[in-house]
Simulated assay, not measured.
Amino acid sequence: MAGFSGSDRFLRIKDVVQSTGLSRSYIYQLSGCGEFPQPIKLGIKASAWLESEVEEWKRSRVKGSRATSSNFGG
């Protein structure tokens, strides 16, 4: 995934849910099997995702979807 940039924001789980439209449990499931960016531990009970990594994941999903759907166009 993308590297850290000084202007990168940390997104907490509620922000990731809102940004992706995925459920909290599904985000953790995808993350656990390597299909979604890994959260970064901020503390004992706090984790966050890099905004750039979540945005990159979203772009890859759109790109993959467009490539697949173009095969049905004829």
Rank of each mutant, 00 (worst) to 15 (best):
S23E: 06
P39A: 09
Q18D: 13
F10R: 08
F36E: 03
G64T: 07
E51S: 15
S7R: 08
F4H: 11
V16T: 13
F72D: 05
P39I: 13
S19G: 00
L50S: 05
I13Q: 12
R59G: 00
S47F: 02
A2Q: 10
Q18A: 14
F4K: 09
K41W: 02
L30T: 12
Q29N: 13
S52I: 01
S7C: 09
E56M: 08
C33F: 07
V54T: 05
E35T: 00
G21A: 08
G74R: 07
I13R: 03
T20W: 05
D8A: 00
K45Y: 14
S23I: 07
G32F: 06
S23H: 11
E35Y: 02
E56G: 11
G21K: 07
P39S: 10
Q38W: 01
V17Y: 01
D8I: 02
I40T: 10
M1D: 03
S70A: 03
F72T: 09
I13E: 11
E53D: 08
Q18E: 13
V17I: 15
Y26M: 08
R24E: 15
G43A: 11
F4Q: 02
F4E: 02
G43H: 05
G64P: 12
G74Y: 03
S47R: 10
S19A: 15
G3T: 03
D15W: 00
K45E: 09
S65N: 08
S5T: 01
G73L: 13
S47N: 13
V62P: 08
V16M: 09
S65R: 13
K58T: 04
F72H: 02
G43D: 12
F10N: 13
R12E: 15
R12G: 15
S60L: 01
S7M: 06
L11P: 14
G73S: 14
G73D: 08
G73P: 06
S19Q: 14
L42E: 00
G64K: 09
P37D: 14
I13W: 05
D15L: 10
I44S: 11
